[in-house]
Write a protein that binds this DNA or RNA. Sequence first.
DNA 1: GTACTGATACTCT
DNA 2: GAGTATCAGTACT
Length: 195
Amino acid sequence: MKKLNRKFYCRNTVIVAKALLGKLLVHKVDNKKIAGRIVETEAYFGKGDPASHASRGVTPRNKVMFEKPGYAYVYFCYGFYNMFNVVTEKEGVPGAVLIRALEPVKGVDFMRKMRKTNDSFNLTNGPGKLTLALKIDLTKNKEDLTGNKLFIADDGKKKYFKIVSSKRIGINVAKDKLLRFYIKGNPFVSKMAKG
DNA sequence: GTACTGATACTCT
DNA sequence: GAGTATCAGTACT
């Protein structure tokens, strides 16, 4: 299993968003590995993308989007849910990829416990749900994804699949931009994404 | 099956 | 003080 390095993230946000599909998101919790395959992502830029937090310039919250690629940007939203993003582009250029859905791979029991459900299709099929299942919270903001606790790896499997792009979800601006990407036919793609 | 609503707390104006 | 990169539950057809 190959961990993705800084160079992987230091590219155009759309390229990274597509390249992340099929990769494994791994989080070590209490010496246990919790992992899920990324099946759905969304790209967010800075300038020129009104849907992005970074579009209005740097704030204390979105600062990490302007910093080095390969870091986690965890954003708390709607009072309940955290969103997990991966910072992209070179330092000084804002950009991030929102991980919208995972396919559970390792530590499924742990995920069930965290999500309090036995429905394995309902564990990680949404951005708010997957952070709960993997125990990702605001303390993981600015976590270095090239480290050993929280990282993304390529296990070499699932090389061949079809990528579908469509409109982004849950936002009210720039709806016409096709910046959401998912693996065609995968049952773990988020509910809200279908249709 | 689809459509709408409320919960909730953090961040920026 | 208003808005938010969501979800689950309820009320319909």
